[in-house]
């Protein structure tokens, strides 16, 4: 990269990091893993900087595919890499319990289901856009979202009480 191009890229990263990091964290549930996933995606963005029209969308696509690829390769084969548990900040006990329960539930979803839920309900993206980012049909997105929600509620029954409490 030329210095001017690098400055453009760095400016993009500075502006896009808050949103992209939220996606990375929602996909991985861990600080270090989220940093690694986002950095990997940004490397690919940097390598293609002059060739892509929407670097934010491209970074999201890379993150989703890398997460799915990683999960297939390492998690499904039940290779456990020990990581220290994330430290949870001081919080009301109920909130902590819900987050832990949600994290455990998300960890038990398939990577594509989790990606669909993050795109649809964290990023509020329409089905057609989710389908484009994930490289599948809108019908697949709808079915994955439906199954993912049902599974999430089954694994994390506390979710229902959250809405009532708020």
């Amino acid at each position: 990269m030329r210095p001017s191009t690098e400055q453009e890229f760095l400016a993009f990263v500075a502006a896009a990091t808050p949103a992209l990091f939220r996606v990375a964290y929602a996909l991985t549930g861990q600080q270090q893993a989220a940093e690694d996933l986002l950095q990997s995606a940004l490397e690919r963005v940097a390598a293609r900087w002059r060739r892509i029209d929407d670097p934010g969308a491209y970074a999201r696509t890379v993150m989703y595919h890398e997460q799915i690829s990683w999960w297939r390769r390492w998690k499904r084969r039940e290779v456990v890499v020990a990581r220290p548990p994330e430290r949870v900040a001081d919080d009301p006990a109920a909130g902590v319990a819900l987050r832990l329960s949600l994290r455990a539930a998300l960890d038990r979803l398939g990577p594509r289901q989790r990606a669909v839920l993050v795109l649809r309900y964290l990023e509020d993206r329409p089905e057609a856009e989710v389908a484009r980012l994930l490289g599948c049909s809108p019908k697949t997105v709808a079915s994955q979202a439906s199954r993912g929600l049902a599974r999430l509620r089954e694994l994390c029954p506390e979710l229902g009480s959250l809405e009532e409490a708020r």
Binding site: V13, A14, T17, F21, R22, G95, L102, R103, Y121, R166
Partner: peptide, 17 residues
């Protein structure tokens, strides 16, 4: 939606450029 946002809020964004 709320739970996912709460989860995403836990992350501490780092400038990785």
């Amino acid at each position: 939606r709320t739970a996912l946002r709460d989860l995403a809020d836990e992350g501490r964004p780092v400038d990785l450029g």
